[in-house]
Each structure stands twice: as structure tokens, then as C-alpha cells.
Simulated scan of single mutants.
Amino acid sequence: MKRTRLILLIISFLTLQFINVSILFSQNSNIYQNPVVAESLPDPTIIKAKDGYFYLYATENIRNLPIYKSANLVDWTFLGTAFTKDTRPDFEPKGSLWAPDINYIDGKYVLYYSMSVWGGEWTCGIGVAVSDKPEGPFTDKGKLFRSNEIDVQNSIDQFYIEEKGKKYLFWGSFRGIYAIELSKDGLSIKPGAEKKRIAGTAFEGTYIYKKGKYYYLFASIGSCCEGAKSTYKLVVGRSKSLFGPYLDKTGKDMIDNGYSIVIGPNSRFVGNGHCSEIVQDKKGNDWIFYHGVDLTNPKGRILLLDQVRWDKEGWPYIEGGSPSLSADKPVF
């Protein structure tokens, strides 16, 4: 009996030492693992604030829009929410807050958001809120428009961009991608502005990134929200003009639902899409967040991170064409 106890003590000691070494290795490792946050954070958006930290916002699986903070894109701290019960937008009384888009405009942190009930494609719309600080609190400025007011079904998934001193909003979800000019402060539609159709009905979750002579329109196709059966993929087209035509690698126009795949599924993660803004680390490497479904625990849409690389023709890609399980950390 004493010998058995001694053996068990030795095994326990060695196990404890192994755990301690593993923790120490994890803390000092230059490797990160996906998901970087194993909580449901769909449709992420990110900004590097004036304080040098990164702030990330997501669709409200955490009610009132969650806000996270990080110094290195890998280790995230939950700060709270953009809104409270009392400050929550209400132009869609039973609606949820989806797909935020964070920006810094004229000294203010400006948060565009979608508000919708599932299936309410003619009553949903896009609103805007502002704050002096990236962590909030945000003050709602109300809706920019509803679907039935701008005559674009499923008016959600907005993206803000500036071009030659003008401000524009892109939006749309499987009913066409559209763009329109905003007012000088970005808080309303410019009087008399006309909407312009940019892409076809295969897409939602628009993000546009300028690199070199091209604008790259990232979008998502497929089903986002069917758990392990989700077919979401991140795709891209590019143009020499902000307003298109955006063409895929074969020359097919995104107006005609052409696209080239950037991120598809693998044996661990499916339903991968709706990307954040691209951000750079200190070495100039490009990084992108997006959500996916972890087949080992397919509840919610968890936060994934990968480096964006560029091939010799200037097209973006992710190593292996699907989410990494682990990779070198961003350099900060």
C-alpha cells in the first residue's frame, strides 16, 4: 500500500510540474491559438485608438454590443457594452443590434450599427452612435435609414469609408451591395445623395481595403448562422475605383456575383466570414479577424484571427485557405 501511495505521489508531482511548464511555455510563447476568444463574437470590427490599444466590437450575443480591449490582438479583456438598457437604440423596438462598424471621425468615435429582427428585411435599418472614448459610453444619434425608406431590402451590414475628403456608407445583405454619400460629419445621409449598386445578391458583410492601386472588396457568402452546418466563406474582388467594377481573379464582375475565395472551411472551423478591418503589427504584417463555428463546441460564432498575405499578383490570401489552428503571434 505504501509503495502504491509513493507511486501516486510521484505521478502527481510530475503531472503538476508538467502543468507548470505548459503554463510557462504558453505565457512566453510566440504562438497563438484559434479561437483567440472562445466566446460568441460575430461580425467583429476593430480600431486602434488614440491610447495605443485595440478595441473590438461585435454583434450582440452579449446584449447591447460587447467591447473588448487588447494591446497585441491576441489577449483580450471584456470592458462592457456600447449601450445600456436605458441608452439602447430603439428605432426597431424588438430588434437586435448587429454588425457594428467602428470609426474615428472628426475627433469622435463613431459606431454604425444595424438593427433588425430575424427575417424583418423591410423594417430593419442602420443607425449611428458617438463617443469621446472607444470604451464608451456611446450616445445614440438614431437611424440613418430603414430598408423601406431607402428601398433596399435587408439594409444591414454597413461599412464606412472616406475617399478624397468625402464620406461614404456601403451596406447590404443578399439583396445587393449599395453605397451612398454621407454628410460632412458622417451622421446622416447627404441631402440629395443617390445610392449606387456595387455588387450582386450573393454577398453581405462588406469591407473595403485600399492597397496599392486597388480597392479590395471583402464580403461573405453562404449561410452564417446554422451552427455546424454553416457554409459562410470570406471572398474578395478588386477594382481601381472605389465604386467598381469589382472583379474576381477570372475577371467576373461582383455585380454578376463573381468572387474569389479567401477563407473556406477545414476540419475544425466552418462558417468562416464577416471580417473586421485589416490592421498591421509593428513589422507591417496585415491581420484580420472574422467569426467562425468551432466544430469541437459549435455554439455561437467565435473570434478567429489570421495573417493576410498577398500573392505576386496582389491578391489577398490566408495560409492554407482556411483558419489556422495556431500561428506566430502579431509583433507588438
Score class of each variant (00 low, 15 high):
10 I>S: 11
105 I>Y: 12
44 P>M: 04
33 Q>E: 12
174 F>E: 03
38 A>K: 13
230 S>Q: 10
153 Q>N: 08
48 K>I: 04
262 V>M: 10
311 D>T: 07
286 D>L: 15
6 L>T: 14
286 D>F: 15
290 Y>L: 09
111 L>V: 14
321 G>P: 10
35 P>L: 06
172 G>D: 13
91 F>Y: 12
323 P>T: 02
85 K>Q: 03
275 C>S: 15
55 Y>N: 03
140 D>P: 08
228 A>R: 09
6 L>Q: 11
221 I>E: 06
127 G>I: 09
193 A>E: 11
266 N>I: 08
171 W>N: 10
246 Y>M: 02
220 S>L: 04
235 V>R: 03
280 Q>L: 07
82 A>L: 04
255 I>L: 15
69 K>P: 07
21 V>A: 15
292 G>D: 14
122 W>R: 01
194 E>T: 11
170 F>R: 08
269 F>N: 15
144 L>P: 11
170 F>E: 01
57 Y>D: 08
41 L>N: 14
47 I>E: 02
275 C>R: 12
267 S>P: 05
180 I>E: 14
57 Y>V: 07
175 R>V: 05
147 S>T: 10
318 I>W: 01
71 A>D: 12
26 S>A: 15
19 I>G: 05
194 E>A: 13
238 R>T: 09
45 T>W: 00
90 D>W: 02
228 A>G: 01
101 D>C: 05
178 Y>N: 07
311 D>V: 10
121 E>C: 12
47 I>K: 11
65 L>N: 03
34 N>I: 10
186 G>W: 03
32 Y>Q: 02
163 E>Q: 06
109 Y>L: 00
89 P>M: 00
254 M>T: 05
188 S>L: 07
